[in-house]
């Protein structure tokens, strides 16, 4: 081994971009790492308190705004599209998250590489979410193709035969039969009571029927599910598939729902 021996001719160093001899051995990477001994940042107690206060305020704000939305819609009898709710809530959450990250987690005072790492994770998340949403409108077709076998909300009960109706409906009927002995009036009363109580802790826009002032579509629920007829009649583009499906007369087919 002859590693003490000078091994190379002189000229290549500059070609390679190293300042020969100008190398700081305690700070080989040119980062601050070698130099900032005793310079760890202390986020002051005052800053922490202010951040906490802001966070609590914003929590109150997001709850307040969500409830205000409901109130406004009911009072003025208008309809907000769903993105209003989401974007208000998410904007506030983002501000809160930014505060936690910057001050409690001290990213603001930290090595920038850590910020880069964190942003990368958010970026990857955005890609994941973004690209997963672009083929959403095809899901209905996939379900319709499987429509004969599969029920909305699932029907494959463990250790039992496959249900021939949606689980939600199945459970409702079981409850009505075994607990309430088929007493539909009692069922309705219990339901009304529960739903009324619900308004105390989760205000929501209740009227789903159109009024003279507004016209609201019933988005989301699978149309006709609890009515007697099969939903394939509702014109969701999968009626044709069911013509060939021997089961479609007895089983309500699934559909993406809207």
């Amino acid at each position: 081994m002859n590693h003490n021996q000078p091994l190379r001719s002189a000229h290549a160093a500059d070609a390679h971009g190293h300042a020969p001899g100008g190398f700081d051995e305690t700070n080989p990477h040119g980062t601050a790492a070698g130099h900032h001994a005793h310079k760890h940042v202390i986020v002051s107690a005052f800053t922490n308190r202010v951040v906490l206060a802001v966070l609590l305020t914003f929590t109150a704000l997001t709850v307040g705004l969500a409830n205000a939305e409901v109130w406004i819609q009911q009072y003025f009898d208008i309809h907000f599209p769903t993105w209003v709710n989401v974007s208000v809530a998410m904007s506030i959450a983002t501000v809160k998250a930014a505060l936690v990250v910057m001050y409690f987690m001290q990213l603001r005072y930290d090595n920038p590489i850590n910020t880069v790492i964190f942003l990368f994770s958010l970026f990857a998340f955005a890609l994941f979410l973004g690209f997963t949403t672009i083929d959403l409108d095809n899901r209905g077709k996939v379900y319709a193709y499987k429509g004969g076998e599969v029920q909305v909300g699932g029907n494959r009960i463990v250790g039992a035969k496959t249900l021939d109706k949606p689980i939600v409906q199945q459970r409702r009927e079981e409850f009505l039969k075994s607990v309430l002995a088929g007493d539909q009036a009692k069922f309705d009363a219990m339901k009304a009571e529960l739903f009324h109580h619900r308004q105390n802790y989760h205000p929501r826009v209740e009227h789903s029927v159109s009024t003279s002032g507004t016209s609201r579509p019933r988005g989301g629920t699978t149309p006709g599910l609890f009515e007697a007829k099969a939903p394939a009649d509702d014109g969701h583009g999968h009626g044709a598939d069911h013509k060939h499906d021997s089961n479609s007369a007895t089983k309500p087919a699934s559909g993406s729902g809207h």
Partner: peptide, 18 residues
């Protein structure tokens, strides 16, 4: 047996592929 990806449990198999 919670439904996420299995259509028999109400889930979305295409979501699994994603």
């Amino acid at each position: 047996h919670i439904g996420i990806f299995d259509p028999g449990l109400g889930g979305d198999p295409v979501l699994f592929q994603h």
